[in-house]
Design a protein around this nucleic acid. Structure first.
Lengths: 138, 138
DNA sequence: TCTTGACTTAGACAAAGTCTAATGTAGGAT
DNA sequence: ATCCTACATTAGACTTTGTCTAAGTCAAGA
């Protein structure tokens, strides 16, 4: 994700300290922070950053396709920087931990055309649920 | 879902006008209302019903397994009375319409054990996304 | 019919996110 | 190098969605 800032600049982004810090917080694999967590971590480096800017920047990253929004439950959305690798999520029903997983096969193919009701189906999101090793041990 | 009230009474539910009205609103296929919509429709028949009661009743129906909670996006949860038939959802990316669909095959089998990270995987939720006929026509 | 514990209510509260008007600034123009 | 201005940021009010509490109400069994 280190070339993210370059890609964004190429698309006309004005490069500000705030945007740089938000992008840096999201850098790394298997990171799925809420907007509030991103704000807290960004504020460690740039204390005056506002919540609105974090929300704006996350929204921009999502609409540019650089980051995925994940709504695992009815709670806060989480942001997944691993947008360039197709993957799905495995969520612990007890503690909410998320792992990226890579199922086999063409997931879209599982939906017969008789079940598509005239929709132009373009994407599929899969969430596996279960207990993580820590929670099932308890 | 017409025998729902009987099932609930059998499980010790006290049968009140409020609960009856909420259950009636949810009755019907392919209905996916938000809590607020359920409240509005319930209030047409029982004007003094409170939001808290609607939330309580929906929560009870969910924990009894009679209704499913669906978080299609980061917005309000929707309630799906079709809980007794395994199904997944097809959501219009533009207008948010939801259809119930029934994919083929064993969806859980798509996740190899090497990708389970020690989780006891017990459920899978699939959301297909695309444009509905109305929105793709525009 | 009486009683009681379960149910409902209004409204305060909380969490997550959006919006606005005022202010600041990145980066091209000069 | 500096200036300019459209784009970006800020604080905080506001909205939406959902939860909680204390007081009042009622379904259903005794």
């Amino acid at each position: 994700m280190s070339d993210l800032l370059e890609r964004l600049r190429g698309r006309g982004w004005r490069l500000t300290a705030q945007r740089r810090v938000v992008a840096e917080v999201l850098d790394g694999d298997h990171v799925h922070y809420t907007a509030d967590e991103v704000h807290a971590k960004a504020a460690e480096r740039l204390p005056e950053i506002s919540r609105a800017t974090v929300y704006n920047t996350l929204g921009e990253l999502v609409s540019l396709g650089e980051v995925l929004e994940v709504s695992t439950d009815g709670r806060a959305k989480r942001y997944d920087p691993n947008a360039h690798h197709a993957h799905q999520h495995l969520v612990c029903s007890r503690c909410g931990t998320i792992r990226d997983v890579h199922p086999e096969g063409d997931l879209l193919a599982g939906l017969p055309s008789a079940e598509r009701f005239g929709f132009q189906v373009s994407a599929v999101e899969v969430t596996y649920r279960g207990l993580c090793p820590d929670c099932s041990a308890g």
